[in-house]
């Protein structure tokens, strides 16, 4: 059985060329900042977002679209509900060095 659509969610994917995590924004383009993402309110807009994701995949701009369920509170700030999505949004626990500039294990 398919999972029920989340009532409050954002559409996410990875950029085909770069692999960057992206979110569908209110201005009809992809953004790397979840704070600029279009937040669905109710299953109807969630379905619209999913359809948009399929169209964007078909256009080869992104890969792996899906909806990220958000905490239901009224806060304008989008906070994912699931641990996996919280970690995906936060990035690695350890700061990632800039190329060639530091020693990974320096104390």
């Amino acid at each position: 059985m398919a999972n029920a659509l989340p009532t409050r969610a954002v559409l996410t994917a990875n950029d085909v060329r770069s692999g960057d995590i992206v979110f569908w924004s209110a201005d009809g383009s992809w953004t790397t900042d979840i704070n600029n993402a279009l937040i669905s309110q109710g299953t109807e807009t969630a379905e619209t977002l999913l359809s948009r994701g399929q169209a964007e995949e078909a256009a080869n701009r992104v890969v792996g679209t899906y909806l990220v369920a958000l905490r239901p509170e009224d806060s304008a700030e989008p906070v994912p509900l699931k641990l996996r999505e919280i970690r995906r949004l936060a990035g690695p626990s350890v700061p990632v060095p800039a190329a060639g500039t530091e020693t990974r294990h320096a104390a």
């Binding site: 990875n14 060329r17 080869n60 890969v63 792996g64 996996r84």
Partner: peptide, 28 residues
């Protein structure tokens, strides 16, 4: 061919995996 849309992700996925290229939590 993937970047120009001649290959869909469904078609490309096994080809990239056969060359060790995964799509992980954050990136390729």
């Amino acid at each position: 061919r993937r970047l120009t849309g001649q290959l869909s992700e469904e078609e490309f996925r096994p080809l990239r995996l056969q060359n060790g290229l995964y799509l992980q939590l954050h990136a390729y």
